[in-house]
């Protein structure tokens, strides 16, 4: 392991430890009881006590977030392609998309819950999808519509089809923008999943676990859930960063 790689792991680890210590210190110095603010040392017992629930809930939250994000990628890319290739469709769809994006998704939760009663998995995935497809659609459409005509012409002059031009040039050229949007979308999808889990009755996943901590006045449990949510968020984010490095690593200029 090189010194640089070592630093890449060590520095963030130290930062997390420092953060936890400061948190502990803050609660201790103010003499706050558990029901005002739990401290990191209170969290461990909560994890031990509810370990089975945590594993199950994390899995529920994780798969539904990834499923919603997957839908957002497919749908967002499709919408982005339509808007990127057709000026008319861009003019038609843009206000609709912006309007849709502006609706606070918390208001959508009861509508979804009524529309698809009892379909908790479906509703959760849908909300994660709805909240996260917008940045993907916008970035793909901008990436495609700002493609310099010469890029198209080098292939078109050889008689390449539109599909070939899309695969060989438009798509790869859009990848850096796409991954930029995906980093935003991954966090949004996560928020969507949790929103549904917390708000909808008889929910499952980490959101529901948080909600039951609230109902039972188990404050350390609530904080413990938040920490797991943060950890899962970090995990998903770095999966995207990892994929970006594989598929769009060329966009990163080497230091000279």
């Amino acid at each position: 392991m090189s010194r640089r790689q070592f630093n890449q792991i060590l520095v963030p680890t130290i930062a997390v430890v420092v953060f936890l210590l400061l948190w502990e210190l803050l609660v201790w110095a103010n003499g706050w009881p558990n029901y005002v603010m739990a401290s990191p040392s209170d969290l461990w017992p909560a994890y031990v006590r509810f370990s089975g629930l945590f594993v199950e809930a994390s899995w529920e939250t994780l798969w539904r977030t990834v499923a919603g994000l997957g839908l957002a990628i497919i749908f967002g890319t499709l919408i982005g392609m339509i808007m990127g290739f057709s000026r008319t469709m861009r003019d038609a769809l843009y206000p609709l998309l912006v309007g849709f994006n502006a609706i606070p998704k918390a208001t959508v939760v009861p509508i979804m819950a009524l529309l698809f009663v009892g379909q908790h998995d479906f509703n959760t995935v849908m909300l994660a999808f709805m909240i996260s497809f917008f940045p993907i659609a916008v970035s793909v459409s901008i990436g495609l519509s700002t493609l310099e005509p010469e890029y198209r012409d080098i292939l078109r002059s050889l008689g390449a089809s539109k599909l070939t031009i899309f695969w060989k040039i438009a798509l790869p050229k859009t990848l850096p923008e796409f991954f930029g949007a995906l980093k935003v979308a991954v966090t949004l999808a996560f928020i969507g999943t949790n929103l549904m889990e917390i708000v909808s009755p008889h929910g499952r996943g980490l959101g529901a676990l948080f909600d039951s901590g609230k109902t039972n006045s188990d404050y350390p449990l609530m904080f413990a859930v938040l920490i797991v949510l943060a950890a899962l968020g970090i995990l998903l984010f770095y999966v995207v960063v990892f994929l970006e490095r594989i598929f769009a690593g060329w966009a990163e200029r080497r230091e000279t």
Partner: peptide, 10 residues
């Protein structure tokens, strides 16, 4: 060939 070499960066 154009003034802009339009090479594919990837």
């Amino acid at each position: 060939a154009f003034q802009n070499p339009v090479l594919l960066e990837w």
